[in-house]
Amino acid sequence: MNQVLVLCIEDEQEVRDAILRDLEPFAEHFQVEAAETADAAREVLQEALARKDKLGLVLCDHLLPGQSGVDFLVELKKDERTAVARKVLITGQASLEDTVKAVNEAGLDSYIAKPWKREELQEIVVKQLTEFVLGNVEELLPYVSVLDGPRLLEEVGRRKADK
């Protein structure tokens, strides 16, 4: 069964747990995975792609051990299998230069500054996943209850007629 993957990359365990807690409402409808580094994330991603899952959303810290978050996002943008995934940076320490690179080369969709509020993060996740689902998923109804319902339903109305 093909699922939509939500990938969270954050090296500090406390912060990672906080993000995962905020993502809990989405866990029933999406495959939510977390990784400590870009390398670990790549591994999770390869497994998912091998299962024919799609990458829907990446929530990525910038300062990571090894490859930086922005460089990882740029890499995702260049791979055609993950280019359409929505990309969000969660960070407090990205320089202007890094941020510009993220916008211009990785097609950054949203930026969450640390510390964030639960509602703020969830609102951004809903908005970004709704965009992703509208553009990349055929069957929208399963997501009406968890994402932006009215927007999805309007699209269903445009697409569908009676069977």
Binding site: G149, P150, R151, L153, E154, V156, G157, R158, K160, A161, D162, K163
Partner: peptide, 16 residues
């Protein structure tokens, strides 16, 4: 109109 399209549009009005 199609029942389906109508229902989808109206649900989008009702949900808020």
């Amino acid at each position: 109109m199609s029942n389906t399209a109508t229902a989808a549009t109206m649900m989008a009005v009702v949900l808020p």
